[in-house]
Design a protein around this nucleic acid. Structure first.
Length: 570
RNA sequence: CGGGAUGUAGCGCAGUUUGGCUAGCGCGCUUGCCUUGGGAGCAAGAGGCCGGGGGUUCGAAUCCCUCCAUCCCGACCA
């Protein structure tokens, strides 16, 4: 490819509305252009990277026995009604009507379509297991698209669905995908980590997310610092180990106390001179169906995902002032479990072992001292509902948990029979009995993986692509395009590299060297071959490694093997 | 969806407070000369419904109303 023919419009300055580094660099380096919020044009450089990622994904899916197909983006509402998700999915589902006023959705995922397909075509256990996948545009009307490709409304995703006869088969398919994902992200040259995750609204038992580690990641993950332990989990999911208190403390007499204007844990702790660990924080939550009180230790935060799962509801919100007043009788900041009537009390495990605690008194400007669980109030549900923090013990081995940030680029789910039952997708076993197919689903965000790679690999000059997913391997830069000797040498090298199946850009633009160097760094070609006057006179080429800045001099005739060698390490 | 902000040339911005004459600057773009190892220099150009609509006014990029778009924080997120 010649740079004069390549549509790669680089920008010296990034558009002001680009915030995260991958977004800025994708715009500046001429990979993408915005069309609408969360919707982008992918220019040739971007397209090449996406194709490379897709190809790696494809090869690894095929290796595990996956079969590629293509399912529609436009899906009839009937299918979504049948699965029940037309109503449940909410405003995130892009909806449209055709000229006959029939409802359709733009697919955010394809469980309905694929399950229906298999329902019609698969009847026997002899046809199982079946692994079907596609690489397709997906649509989610995000409330707040942001961060460029990281959270778009239109994006490319690989989704595979597994169909097995039983849990054992599903486990097998799940392990296959776990392995495939590990290989995929390794081959992409990314630092990543599979973590235990919450299965969310999609349901199902077991699920892992594959996180590319990057400071800018939206997800917070905890992992065991112990070398031999591979526990890692999304904070949403990370379990606590509850260690009940060793020493017994005598229970003192319950005592009300005036606490003027002490509404936050901090204010109460300071005013009463007690540590936040001795305070029981009481939060009033509202679900679709009820109002509940949630108790955690003063220095802890409620994990709303765990709470959601505990309550088995779909939505959850902190109650507003009016509701708080109604259920507790006091304003916000003075809620407590003592004497609280009519609503369910859910307490975190730790709460049960706080003795002589401080809580709100359900009366304005007042708290209680010496509150003791079970003596002074009863707990309806005692379970793990709090956020686990770095520094706490690992639930597997007791080692110390460490924290990192990650970008979720893939997730694998065990779905079980959730969709097959709902949609009536069954097979006949050896005894001629109809059984629901046992399903799993497995996604990889292709566009997001590209953005994540940039988040992980960039410097002040631009993108630093891992060679496996770089849009091109090498850029050949003649310093002076008017110098015929330099140009013909550059042409020759361009041809030699191309003939060896190396992807090359010849920067034949009549620009000054500085401009071409800046663009080369910005676009992130793993290798740069510079051709100046010395290259011509001495037949020695300067090869620069983008990642390290390292330069080496290579004789013209050895360039191809040398480049091939270097690419293997990048 | 709640809070905040911004919309002026392809990109980055000034001008808006205090209405005024031909709407500016840098980068980029076009042509020519010159230059050629880290975003050179000189010269000449092209490029604007000042986000849309409505209003106030002799006069609106500037004031008022309204709609739209975009970004940030939060909530949300198979």
């Amino acid at each position: 490819m010649r740079a004069t023919a390549l549509l790669a419009p680089t920008l010296r300055e990034a558009p002001a509305d680009a915030e995260v580094v991958s977004h800025r660099l994708l715009l500046r380096a001429g990979f993408i252009r915005r069309v609408a919020a969360g919707v982008y044009n992918h220019l040739p450089l971007s397209m090449r990277v996406l194709k490379k990622i897709e190809q790696i994904v494809r090869e690894e899916m095929d290796r595990q026995g996956g079969q590629e197909l293509l399912m529609p983006i436009i899906q009839p509402a009937e299918l979504w009604r049948e699965s029940g998700r037309w109503d449940v999915y909410g405003p995130e589902l892009f909806r449209l009507k055709d000229r006959h006023d029939r409802n359709f959705a733009l697919g955010p995922t394809h469980e309905e379509i694929v399950t229906t397909l298999v329902r019609g075509e698969v009847n026997s256990y002899k046809q199982l297991p079946l692994l079907l996948y596609q690489i397709q545009n997906k649509y989610r009307d995000e409330r707040r698209p942001r961060f460029g490709l990281m959270r778009g409304r239109e994006f490319i995703m690989k989704d595979l669905y597994s169909f097995d006869r039983d849990e054992k088969g599903l486990q097998n398919s799940y392990m296959k995908m776990h392995e495939a994902y590990t290989r995929i992200f390794q081959r992409c040259g990314l630092h990543f980590r599979p973590v235990e995750a919450d299965s969310g609204a999609i349901g199902g038992s077991e699920t892992h997310e594959f996180m590319v580690l990057a400071e800018s990641g939206e997800a917070s993950i905890l992992f065991c610092g112990n070398e031999s332990c591979d526990y890692a989990a999304n904070v949403e999911r990370a379990e606590q180990i509850h260690q009940p208190r060793q020493e017994k403390e005598d229970m003192n007499k319950l005592m009300p106390i005036e606490t003027p204007d002490c509404r936050t844990i901090e204010e109460v702790a300071q005013f009463l001179d007690v540590s936040p660990q001795r305070i029981i924080k009481t939060l009033i939550y509202e679900t679709d169906t009820e109002v509940v009180a949630v108790l955690v230790r003063g220095d802890r935060d409620v994990n709303e995902i765990k709470l959601l799962n505990t309550l088995g509801c779909l939505h959850l919100d902190l109650a507003d002032e009016t509701t708080i007043k109604k259920v507790t009788g006091a304003t916000k900041g003075f809620s407590g479990p003592v004497g609280l009537k009519g609503i369910k009390i859910i307490a975190d495990l730790e709460v049960s072992s706080i003795a002589n605690a401080v809580t709100g008194a359900n009366k304005d400007q007042a708290h209680f001292l010496n509150v003791n669980p079970s003596r002074d109030f009863s707990i309806d549900i005692l379970t793990d509902v709090r956020m686990v923090e770095a520094g706490e013990p690992c639930p597997r081995c007791g080692g110390e948990l460490k924290e990192a940030r990650g970008i979720e680029v893939g997730q694998i789910f065990k779905l079980g029979d959730k969709y097959s039952k709902q949609l009536g997708a069954t097979y006949l076993d050896e005894n001629g009995r109809a059984k629901p197919l046992i399903m799993g689903c497995y996604g990889i965000g292709v566009t997001r993986t590209m953005a994540a790679a940039i988040e992980q690999y960039n410097d002040e000059d631009g993108i630093v692509w891992p060679a496996a997913i770089a849009p091109f391997h090498v850029v050949v830069v003649p310093i002076n395009t008017k110098n015929n000797e330099q140009m013909s040498l550059a042409e020759k090298i361009y041809e030699n590299l191309t003939a060896a199946n190396i992807e090359v850009v010849l920067d034949d633009r009549p620009e000054r060297a500085g401009v071409k160097f800046k663009d080369a760094d910005l676009i992130g070609y793993p290798l740069r071959v510079t051709i100046g006057s010395k290259a011509v006179s001495e037949q020695m080429l300067e090869v620069k490694v983008r990642r390290t800045g390292e330069m080496s001099m290579v004789p013209v005739e050895k360039l191809v093997p040398e480049v091939q060698e270097m690419l293997k390490t990048l």
